[in-house]
């Protein structure tokens, strides 16, 4: 049985996929993962998940974010006057970045 492993490096951070292990049950999967994926890189927590329980939908299945113009969803579409609040500006920058990366993929 294959278990997918997600690592969180430090408290508060996100768990990100880092690999997998073969193991017959959850207990051994946890123990194997601790060694295989936690022994060198900084690790605060690992999640182990049975691979069979993972559903996947990919860009072949669905046009993520649509194919027609959805620019109404993005802060960058709206031009407003005067200095924006810092958190609004930060959101807009993050959205600009995401939009650009969407465009590149």
């Amino acid at each position: 049985m294959i278990w997918e492993v997600f690592r969180q490096e430090r408290p508060g951070e996100y768990h990100a996929h880092c690999g997998n292990v073969h193991a017959p049950d959850r207990e051994l999967a946890r123990q194997f993962a601790a060694i295989q994926h936690g022994r060198r890189k900084p690790t605060n927590s690992l999640w182990v998940v049975p691979r069979d329980e993972i559903g996947e939908i990919d860009a072949e299945d669905v046009a993520f974010g649509g194919t027609t113009d959805k620019s109404y969803r993005w802060a960058t579409t709206y031009s407003t006057a005067g200095a924006d609040a810092s958190e609004v500006a930060e959101s807009e920058d993050d959205q600009a970045d995401a939009e650009q990366r969407r465009g590149e993929s």
Partner: peptide, 20 residues
Amino acid sequence: AHAMDKVCFEEGFHVKHGED
């Protein structure tokens, strides 16, 4: 905090649209 990351990411659109 993780929920706030995504909320803050999206919310800039709301405020800018409201301002518009």
